[in-house]
């Protein structure tokens, strides 16, 4: 049975306050949502790639994690957690451990789409019983908002700045969720802390309690990098979903399923407008860039609908 919000709020908090993430940070909302799906009686080992989440949540001598936590490096949380999971399997087999543990790796889009892709791919291919959660905020925020392969086209970042002749990042974003689907692991889903959180709770629960590897790609706004006012976190998420910039779907044992279809698909402009990183697109001479983005969103959305047989 899927976890509803009424029940979810009763679960013990596994990620405490007192961490040093920015005010209004989406990453901690993502983390809290995923961890809420853990059954209270289950223990967990959590890994994090170097990134905002890690440096802010585990800053000696403080940790915001109520479960066991390990940070190793930027590009290797997949391998690190797979090692811990292998240790668990053998120690359990040998009777040295009795409790049930779940294994969850968190990485930003830098540690997941880019530098950590190999380690993630290896861990998933090997079939470890773990969940890899990408909190995708579309740039290397920890080091000061540099472009990643998850950064949307035309976004202004510090290594893809919008200038007089180049209007921000020049490439469309990599579709990592589909790359992960190509691993044919038991569960892959794209989600966001959206609406009443039913989508992310249900997907986190499935990911954690499906035997074998699972991958969650979670849309995670960054007020600092995207340049919007912190209170607007949930609104930005809503716009990403309603414009079909960030479709919610899952691939369970190879079966593609759309989780949410907007009643009325909003134009991409709605998602772009509140964010300072797209400000340059709203100059009159750049109207065609928005059109280009719209075309790409439409193309990807249509292809997804086809895959999901919608």
């Amino acid at each position: 049975m899927a976890l509803n919000l009424r029940e979810a709020v009763k679960r013990p908090e596994r990620f405490t306050g007192g961490h040093r993430l920015c005010a209004g940070c989406g990453a901690s909302v993502t983390v809290r949502s995923v961890l809420r799906a853990l059954k209270p009686e289950d223990k967990a080992v959590i890994g994090a790639a170097t990134g905002c989440l890690e440096v802010s949540s585990c800053l000696y001598p403080y940790t915001a994690w109520k479960d066991s936590f390990i940070h190793n490096a930027f590009e290797n949380v997949g391998a690190t957690v797979s090692g811990a999971e292998a240790a668990y399997r053998v120690l359990k087999k040998k009777g040295k451990i009795n409790d049930n543990y779940k294994f969850i790796a968190f990485g930003g889009d830098g540690g997941t789409y880019d530098i950590g892709l190999q380690s993630l791919s290896g861990a998933m291919e090997r079939g470890h019983d773990m969940v890899y959660v990408c909190y995708d905020n579309g740039a290397y925020m920890n080091t000061g908002i540099q472009r990643s392969s998850a950064t949307p086209k035309f976004a202004n970042t510090t290594t893809s700045p919008a200038g007089k002749v180049v209007p921000g990042k020049q490439q469309f974003r990599k579709d990592l969720t589909q790359v992960m689907a190509g691993h044919h692991i038991p569960y892959v889903a794209q989600t966001a802390p959206f609406g009443n959180f039913n989508d992310i709770h249900a997907k986190a629960e499935k990911a954690i309690y499906t035997e074998g590897p699972a991958f969650l790609n979670v849309f995670t706004p960054c007020p600092r990098g995207w340049r919007y006012d912190t209170p607007k976190l949930m609104e930005i998420i809503k716009l990403a979903v309603e414009t079909c910039y960030w479709p919610l779907y899952e691939i369970e044992n190879g079966k593609w399923k759309l989780s949410y279809k907007p009643k009325k698909k909003l134009p991409i402009e709605e998602f772009l407008r509140p964010q300072g990183r797209f400000k340059h697109l709203f100059k009159p001479e750049n109207q065609h860039l928005i059109e280009e983005l719209q075309k790409e969103v439409d193309k990807r959305w249509e292809a997804l609908l086809e895959k999901c047989e919608e």
Partner: peptide, 26 residues
């Protein structure tokens, strides 16, 4: 669930207040 700082205080499934020790005022 939207609070990044786990600062909405809840008891028995009901909100009871705000944890101002950790709320960053986002």
């Amino acid at each position: 669930p939207v609070c990044p700082d786990s600062s909405i205080l809840v008891e028995d499934g009901k909100m009871t207040g705000i944890d101002y020790d950790h709320c960053k005022g986002c």
